[in-house]
Design a protein around this nucleic acid. Structure first.
Lengths: 222, 222
DNA sequence: AATAATCTTGACTGAATGGTCAAGTCTGTT
DNA sequence: AACAGACTTGACCATTCAGTCAAGATTATT
């Protein structure tokens, strides 16, 4: 048996295994995003990472196992991004950072976002427990923060839930509906367009709840 | 042969046929929404409308034909709703109506919205041409209107596209992510919650672009 | 070098599923 | 009543696909 020293020698079995699993997960994420769980085939995933199909089953016992791992990986990325919603900052800064980070994720993890959306739309059969535990916990802490902001008069009185849903939907839309957006745009969004879209989302939401949307940390004028 | 008088006698063949087709389409919409195209089976759809599977194939030649009809039906409902965005009204009224109507659609046509989202997420293989023709045409007229509003100083300067995407995503989120919302809410949204959510969306967006969000048709204060 | 463990892969299998069909039933017309 | 066209349906077929397997290749351990 190998070493128990916690990290892997380059080229070692364990390291190689991780690398292959990552490659499979990446391929699976893309295929699941494009075809859905039912429409994806193990063969298509195998082709996408240039491995024989039987090999996938060596690393992941079943299609469902593989799918579950894909979804779990996405969820952790999402939770990490969620931490950019710092509860200590001013509403201005906290929301701006959070929205910006979520837009960035939509751009860089289009497939992950789509898989997540798919999963939730189909009733979250796999991740239902995550929703009820991790996601709920996270949401509740942020709701509390937003309530405090309201109470302090820092922002208008809004139901924190509707505000959060607005942020989630608006930002994720750029990943999930990328095809529609790109069709209307006659091509992918440019860097400048991403910046502009992000800025617009920030401004409308910040102004919408009574902050002045410009990037400067001013206080809302009377 | 029957009559060519344009409408059907109650209980007539033609009327009965329409009724059955509608039942199948409704069942299909729900199953496609819940399982996706690949995950849905003709058998499941047949069960959902209490007909033998062979019968579906009498009315719709193939699964893809049935799916296409479902998507087309949704698209027309969507376009009709889109007309509530009256180009003649003031921004205040036009946007408020449109958002309200879209929220209502999300509540009443949850499955339709999900099928549409699914289709777009998977690259819109079936409806790509609709996006390029009808949807683009509709979008361009509204963009022009919003531009005019900006030019007249009625609303802040925003890229109309980002504003439209924001409205679409925020409202549709309540249908597409209903499961997540209901999980966090520990049950379906009440009537009051729907009203409250709708109101919040209206207010944030209207205020966000420089209108005063309250339902009264006031002019933005200086 | 010998042995054991891990990994690779083409060929195969069983179940699920879209679609067909032919025999029958019902409905409207003459 | 008789006929024709429309509708219904259980049984069936062909295909696709997740998952298995066994034989071989590669890598680690002694």
């Amino acid at each position: 048996m190998g070493h128990r020293d916690g990290f892997e020698k380059p080229g070692s079995r364990a390291e190689n295994r991780e690398e292959i699993e990552r490659a499979i997960l990446n391929a699976a994420e893309e295929v699941f995003a494009q075809k859905g769980f039912g429409g994806a085939t193990m063969q298509a995933i195998a082709d996408a990472c240039h491995l024989p199909k039987a090999n996938l089953h060596y690393y992941f016992s079943s299609k469902e196992t593989l799918y579950r791992r894909v979804v779990e990986r996405i969820f952790t990325i999402w939770l990490e991004a969620a931490d950019s919603f710092e509860t200590s900052a001013t509403p201005d800064v906290a929301l701006r950072r959070y929205i910006t980070r979520k837009m960035q994720l939509s751009r860089e993890h289009r497939y992950g976002s789509k898989v997540w959306a798919n999963e939730v739309m189909h009733g979250a059969p796999i991740i239902h427990d995550y929703l009820e535990t991790s996601l709920r916990r996270w949401t509740e802490t942020r709701i509390a923060v937003i309530r405090r902001w309201s109470a302090e008069g820092a922002i208008h009185d809004v139901d924190p839930r509707w505000l959060l849903y607005m942020i989630w939907s608006t930002t994720q839309h750029y990943a999930d509906f990328a095809h529609q957006i790109e069709t209307l745009n006659q091509g992918p969004l440019s860097d400048a367009q991403w910046v502009s879209a992000t800025e617009t989302v920030c401004q409308i939401i910040l102004r919408g709840i009574g902050l002045n949307g410009d990037g400067l940390d001013g206080v809302a004028p009377l």
